[in-house]
């Protein structure tokens, strides 16, 4: 037997959240969900939590346990207790609490709906099934199995700072269609996702890739869409910055911070950053205006050419 602390809160009745302790059987093999069921069935039927399949496929039971969001049905309790000396179960973050461990996922679903999460057929719909080479279909693998549990959004640092950011699940779903050969709306999608609160608002903190219980890689999906958008010539604040950064590498092999800042911020942006600029000038912390190219610049140029040749061959196929 060991103690588990569970977050309790009914915003309609309680002034503030509290943590309640329960003694539960934490034998090896028991999951966090097993323990919650023990409490609910045997001790306190008022404890509210979502769950269904108990096999990590329906996505109902995502919770924040010992500092990390995941599916409580597949979290072994004892190893967590042994590692940390305590077991604390809390609701998912970045979503308002409705009751105890049940959160309001409306914001999550709104973001998902926002990316048009359904196939938009192109012009050539074949009579039978689409013929799509395995390699192309495999591109979807990093995103297609998302069960919409919310774990990624719960940990997303960008969403925490910006509630309008679409978030990893919505954008992974967006990629799943943007990269699907059968979808005919790719250009429109990339343009929409390149706008504010879309693919360029990801701060690449890797939390989503880290916590996804299904091993979906939302951050990777977002990165791929960035490249697709740039290749398609779609301009945005984010693409401007990335391209500015990239251009300096092609020029000197190393980043030219000065030029990158200038090009991506533009005059207005630079003016807005003037307070930072002033301090930087006073401390003589200004980055080099001109970067000496590395000795191996011809390597860089050669590799760039080879990569370009490969890319052209790929698109011609």
């Amino acid at each position: 037997m060991a103690t588990i602390k569970v977050y309790r809160f009914d915003p309609e009745q309680d002034e503030k959240p509290r943590y309640e302790e329960f003694d539960v059987d934490m034998s090896p093999g028991r999951t966090v969900l097993n323990l919650l069921h023990d409490i609910h069935y045997n001790e306190d039927p008022t404890l509210s939590f979502r769950r269904s399949c108990q096999s990590a496929i329906c996505g109902s039971c995502a919770m924040h346990v010992n500092g990390r969001t995941g599916l409580s049905c597949s979290m072994q309790a004892k190893p967590l207790l042994d590692r940390d000396g305590y077991l604390v179960v809390e609701p998912m973050k970045n979503m308002p609490v409705l009751k105890d461990l049940v959160v309001d996922m409306d914001g999550f679903w709104d973001s998902v709906h926002e990316v048009d999460p359904f196939l938009q057929a192109g012009r050539d719909v074949p009579k039978g099934a689409y013929v799509v080479p395995k390699a192309k279909m495999d591109l979807l693998k990093i995103a297609q199995d998302c069960i919409m549990c919310g774990s990624c959004l719960s940990e997303c640092t960008s969403r925490e700072a910006n509630p309008d950011y679409l978030g990893p699940a919505a954008l992974a779903k967006a990629y799943r269609f943007a990269a699907d050969e059968r979808d005919g709306a790719t250009m429109g999608r990339l343009m929409a996702y390149s706008e504010a609160n879309g693919i360029w608002d990801c701060d690449t903190c890797l939390y989503c890739n880290e916590v996804c219980p299904i091993h979906v890689k939302p951050m990777d999906a977002i990165m791929r869409m960035r490249e697709m958008a740039i290749e398609a010539g779609i301009e945005s604040q984010g693409s401007k910055h990335a391209i500015a950064f990239y251009d300096t590498i092609l020029k000197s092999g190393k980043l030219n911070e000065f030029t990158t800042a200038n090009k991506s911020l533009g005059i207005r942006g630079m003016l807005r950053t003037s307070d930072v600029a002033t301090k930087v000038i006073l401390r003589w912390k200004i980055p080099e205006v001109r970067k000496k190219p590395i000795e191996g610049m011809k390597d860089v140029e050669k590799l760039a050419k080879l990569v370009e040749r490969k890319r052209r061959r790929r698109t011609q196929r």
């Binding site: 359904f118 719909v125 099934a129 799943r176 269609f177």
Partner: peptide, 10 residues
């Protein structure tokens, strides 16, 4: 498939 199910391919 036409609606978008990502059926496995050879």
């Amino acid at each position: 498939d036409h609606l978008g199910t990502p059926f496995s391919r050879d």
